[in-house]
Amino acid sequence: MIVLAEPEIKAELPLPAELLPYLGFVLSKATASLHGWVNAELAGLRLDFKQVGFLALLYLQGPQSQIELGRKLRIDRTTVVGMVDDLEAKGYLERQPNPHDRRAYRLVLTPSGRRAIEQAEKIVLRTQEEFLSPLQPGERETLLALLRRLI
């Protein structure tokens, strides 16, 4: 006799109550949840949450060096190089000689990168709104304000 396995249903288990008093634990779970959700929504653009921040700074602030972007985003050099290589391979940015420092390159968004970040911003904002939907508008603003003060 052949027994067919029932499809696996992935239910979210509640977080252990004993760990809920720990801010780091709760923040890390909330962050992981939001990042997972956003990354799934961004998959069609071949981007992830971290890459969106990277491209967003180039979009909003203009060309910059890898070192500047890494400092602003608090990302180590090795990670920055990997991100730049990946984003360049996808055609979203390019390295150009820095007119003020011949030893360095500045990163510039390509037209494809501009389109991608404009689409990604809409996705991120929509997903963020859905994620925060259990909170009242005033609570959302308070949460963001408090988190900004902490960092």
Rank of each mutant, 00 (worst) to 15 (best):
I2T: 14
V3M: 14
L4D: 13
E6S: 12
I9R: 06
K10F: 09
E12W: 05
P14E: 01
P16E: 04
P16V: 00
P16A: 02
E18P: 03
L20T: 08
L20S: 07
P21I: 02
P21L: 02
Y22W: 12
Y22L: 12
Y22V: 13
F25T: 04
F25C: 05
K29C: 04
A30F: 07
H35M: 13
H35K: 15
G36M: 00
V38C: 02
N39W: 00
N39H: 02
L42F: 00
A43N: 08
A43G: 08
A43R: 09
G44E: 01
R46Y: 09
L47G: 01
K50W: 08
V52A: 02
L55I: 00
A56Q: 14
L57S: 12
G62K: 08
G62N: 06
L69D: 01
L69G: 05
L73M: 04
R74K: 13
I75D: 04
D76Q: 14
D76P: 02
R77N: 11
T78I: 08
T78V: 08
T79E: 09
V80Y: 01
V81E: 10
V81F: 14
G82T: 00
G82H: 07
M83R: 12
D85S: 12
D85G: 05
D85F: 06
D85P: 03
L87Y: 01
E88A: 09
A89Y: 07
G91Q: 04
G91Y: 01
E94L: 11
E94R: 15
R95F: 00
P97C: 04
N98S: 09
P99T: 01
R103G: 13
A104W: 12
Y105M: 12
V108T: 10
P111N: 06
R114H: 14
E118Y: 05
E118S: 07
E118V: 04
Q119I: 07
I123D: 02
V124D: 02
L125F: 12
Q128W: 15
F131L: 09
F131K: 11
L132D: 09
Q136N: 10
P137Q: 01
G138E: 10
L147R: 10
L150D: 13
I151W: 14
